[in-house]
Amino acid sequence: MSRKIDITLTVNGAAYAHAADTRSTLVDFLRDDLKLTGTHIGCEHGVCGACTVLVDGEAVRSCLMLAPQADGASIVTVEGLGAANGELGALQRAFRKHHALQCGFCTPGILTTAHALLTQEPDADADRIRDVLSGNICRCTGYVTIVQAILEARDAYRRPADAGTSR
């Protein structure tokens, strides 16, 4: 049965101290406890990538991680990817321009995955992008426009101030 454990963590720049259920996954914790419902659940077994968030800069499947494991971590979710002025960041704008989303359900996980990739490898080519994205399922777009959008956003990541989030 469940029991609670106190954890502290930073999410999208804000600090939280919270009693987390020991059997709660990180994605449930983000969605249910912190009310950050931008992160989605598509499979709960680590295959679809919809739940991807950044944990200390790395793209992580938050359905495979327990909330207590995030104690002390710095987390970025889709809600934290915008530009400082509250507008969409470069990656998000490129997704809109290239029609890289339809239903939008996979989009948060794809944005966080792409953000982590371009932050580390702003020169990633189409093959590399497809490789990294292969852990995120999108049932709507067929991926072509997603790759185009990420290729276009690379420019902004070469000049990090333009990329949107600085978190």
């Binding site: 969409l88 029609h99 989303l101 939008g104 944005l111």
Partner: peptide, 23 residues
Amino acid sequence: TSLERLEDERFLSGRGQYVADVR
């Protein structure tokens, strides 16, 4: 014309509301 989609901003910023988000 290929107008950019009006619904995209809410999806891109995590503000879409799907049924699991209804509390």
